[in-house]
Amino acid sequence: MTGLDPAEFTTLRLRESGDRMHAVLDRPEVRNAIDAAMIAELHTLCAALETTPKILILSGTEVPGRDGTTKGLFASGADIGQLKERRRDDALRGINSTLFDRLAQLPMPVIAALDGFALGGGAELAWAADFRLGSDTLKLGQPETGLGIIPAAGALWRLRELAGEAIAKEMLFAGRILDAEEALAHGLISSVHPSEELPAAAEALADRIARQDPLAVRITKQVFAMPRDAHPHVDNLAQAILFESEEKFARMQAFLDRKKKGTTS
């Protein structure tokens, strides 16, 4: 266990199990806007997961809808009240970009379960995840230029890598907001689910990851992020480490035993 006390968090709700951590963005009164307190708590969470690697699921809490019902929402963006007061030195500190890079580099995979709106900084938080699952009510976009700023926490380069230059420019320059099916078609999410089924879909993906060898998953994530000119040399070094692991021998022997049993039965 990471040793984190959920009671000490005010902007996140944490649920921890043996192989995963589920962090729910929990500022419903401001539509889960990402503020300085949430950034600080996400840094605390990252520090714990760097020391005790676990799969991380990120999702948003339900917020009140205009029709009196509650609706799922990931994050409406950065807290505009705080953002309006930030100046040059704040931008140079990379307040959000530093955190999102840290999230992207966590040892184990990060799953973002995107329900409702994921806009601005909320979308950039999602781009930093390894997997993005969407609800059928998802609205995904980068409206920053309409507010007189740029999306400086990863969208200007991650979005092009994820979806290609054409759609990235539409979202970044023209403020286009994608719905779930458009996001799926452009590879920005990997699947679409009804809102009520989204949490279970994220848990099911975490289950599939958890069935793999954790060390092999960690090394695969690290090698995947390497620049092209690092391959195949880094692949060979990583494989050399895994070839000596006890887990590799145990899993391969179990595979051979199952195959033998299937042949003789």
Rank of each mutant, 00 (worst) to 15 (best):
A23W: 07
C46D: 05
L25S: 08
E16D: 07
A23M: 11
V30W: 05
R31F: 10
E50K: 13
C46P: 00
K71M: 13
L45E: 00
A40K: 10
G65V: 02
A40L: 07
E29S: 06
H22R: 13
A48L: 04
L42G: 12
A48D: 04
H22V: 15
L49I: 03
A37N: 08
G18V: 10
M21R: 08
R20W: 00
V63S: 08
P53Q: 05
R27E: 08
D67L: 15
A40R: 12
R66C: 07
S17V: 11
A33E: 09
A7N: 10
T10V: 14
E62T: 15
R13E: 12
R66D: 10
R15G: 12
P28I: 06
T52F: 05
T11H: 09
F9E: 03
T61Q: 10
E50W: 00
P6M: 04
L42E: 11
R27G: 05
M21A: 08
G68A: 05
G18P: 07
N32M: 08
A23G: 01
L58M: 01
T51V: 10
R66G: 08
G72D: 06
E41L: 04
A37E: 13
L56E: 00
R20G: 15
E41H: 03
V24P: 04
T70C: 14
D67F: 10
G18E: 14
P64I: 08
E50T: 11
V24D: 01
A48C: 04
H43Y: 12
I55Q: 02
P53D: 04
A23L: 07
N32W: 02
R13G: 09
V30Q: 03
G65F: 09
R13Q: 14
G18N: 05
L58T: 08
A7K: 12
L42I: 05
H43D: 12
L14G: 05
T69A: 09
D26Y: 10
A47V: 03
R15H: 14
L49N: 07
L73H: 01
R13I: 09
A23I: 10
V30C: 06
F74L: 04
A40W: 00
I39H: 07
E16Y: 10
L56G: 03
R27C: 11
E41C: 07
R15L: 13
I55F: 03
V63W: 02
A47G: 02
I57T: 11
A33S: 13
E29P: 02
L56N: 03
E62R: 14
T51W: 07
K71A: 15
E41Q: 03
R66M: 14
E62L: 11
E29G: 10
R20P: 06
V30T: 14
T70D: 12
